[in-house]
């Protein structure tokens, strides 16, 4: 290396690089609702998922570079399945997984030239809303414990602000989805999101065994067109929405 670069400058450059990469994409929103945790991504692709199942009660959401967070997702599925197989299904926790991700991201950030341009959420739905766990992990391996709602990727600040104005605790699914979509539209002024360009999934604590469920496009548009306030007809039918 021809010139001396101070560690501070080096870290700052890497962080700026990662932040820029993450801000280039579109946003993902995670929020708690009446029956669990809702994930909504502004993602028109049916094949490349930003939201995925990790284990019985745990899901994964990510923004940034696809190949990088996909690698982390695949590793997370392995971590969960190995632990669930060797101990018990109940012994797989979001906290453990968040730690593994934090270690890996931290190592990559400090020891390689190019940091991962990703931001992740690892969420675990509990028996009740106050036992839900939502961890946000950033490119340098920092972990934050979140409550209620969060937005990441793209114009995350604008979306967060919009969420903050609309979010209430214990919203029914249709309303929570509307809050999420309207907030995602705050990415830029002309944005109008329809079911076709959304990836939506829930961790529903009222389901059995594997609580993760993707919501199919038809279901999402039905929920979005429900009259605000007329959410009394909360049907259980999430139907054939398996990916």
């Amino acid at each position: 290396m021809p010139f001396y670069v101070s560690p501070e400058q080096q870290m700052k450059d890497k962080a700026d690089y990662a932040r820029k990469g993450i801000a280039r994409g579109r946003s993902v929103v995670v929020l708690q609702y009446e029956d669990g945790i809702l994930f909504v991504a502004d993602n028109p692709s049916r094949a490349l998922h930003k939201i995925s199942e990790i284990y019985d009660r745990i899901a994964f959401a990510a923004v940034g570079k696809y190949n990088e967070f996909e690698n982390l997702r695949l590793g997370g599925v392995r971590y969960a399945d190995v632990n669930g197989y060797q101990y018990d299904r109940r012994d797989v926790t979001a906290r453990g997984l968040a730690n593994v991700y934090a270690q890996s991201l931290g190592t990559i950030f400090t020891e390689t030239n190019k940091p991962y341009e990703v931001e992740l959420v690892v969420a675990e739905v509990g028996e009740s809303a106050d036992l839900d766990q939502i961890y946000r992990l950033t490119f340098d391996g920092s972990v934050a414990d979140e409550h209620g709602f969060l937005a990441m990727g793209g114009q995350a600040d604008a979306v967060s602000q919009a969420l903050k104005e609309r979010f209430r605790e214990g919203l029914p699914l249709a309303e929570a989805l509307r809050v999420a979509v309207r907030s995602l539209e705050a990415q830029d002024s002309e944005r109008r999101l329809e079911a076709r360009s959304l990836e939506v999934a829930v961790l529903d604590r009222n389901r059995e065994h594997r609580l993760f469920r993707r919501l199919a496009e038809a279901r999402v548009s039905a929920l979005l067109s429900e009259e605000p306030g007329a959410a009394a007809a909360e049907d259980e039918d999430e139907g054939s929405s398996e990916s």
């Binding site: 590793g75 392995r78 971590y79 190995v82 593994v100 270690q103 190592t107 990559i108 020891e111």
Partner: peptide
């Protein structure tokens, strides 16, 4: 890359 120094190299 994390296979080099990650805490659980085999996983990823």
């Amino acid at each position: 890359q994390d296979a080099v120094g990650g805490r659980l190299p085999g996983l990823f």
